[in-house]
Design a protein around this nucleic acid. Structure first.
Lengths: 76, 76
DNA sequence: AATTAATGTCAAGTATATATGACAAAAAAT
DNA sequence: ATTTTTTGTCATATATACTTGACATTAATT
């Protein structure tokens, strides 16, 4: 019997961004505008659907006042 | 008179990766293999020619034993 | 000095991050 | 209870991260 192990594509949902956003009372749209991407992009990142660019990560950190390690570091 | 301000595309050359690599006596090829990308990709990142994915940044950090902030945080 | 290894760079292709528009569901405000 | 705002999600399109192969140049080895 052959088994195929499918690569798990799911990236962890990033609840840290959501929390940091909430702390500043910012909507996804507001964050999106502040960093210059579409709302869907922010949503997808929070849903863990993709794998943003370091440049975008930096912009998000700048706006949310957090470090890369805080928002995007490996989950323990 | 009309002036056009061209977007500056240059990303800072990342000498921090080069240094961390040197500290472990790793070649670009060795790092590339360890993180599963091509040698040209590592070279391009060090030359500041693009804008890697957070996933790749994390992999590089893991291999080089550095944090995201140390290798990819905003320059001062 | 000659050979080998490591790096920088180019061109052409593929995979995927991000954009835009649209709509439904959930949450918040009235 | 209704309306409005926010969020989740889909489909199609575009920009760009990353690949592969190739070659020249620089740095190490012998």
């Amino acid at each position: 019997m052959l088994l195929f192990v499918q690569e798990v594509v799911a990236i962890a949902r990033n609840v840290r961004i959501k929390a940091a956003r909430a702390a500043l009372d910012m909507t996804q749209k507001a964050l999106a505008d502040a960093v210059g991407v579409s709302r869907q992009t922010i949503n997808a990142i929070e849903q863990g659907e993709y794998n943003p660019t370091i440049k975008l990560c930096r912009a998000i950190c700048r706006v949310l006042g957090k470090s890369l390690d805080e928002l995007f570091g490996e989950e323990e």
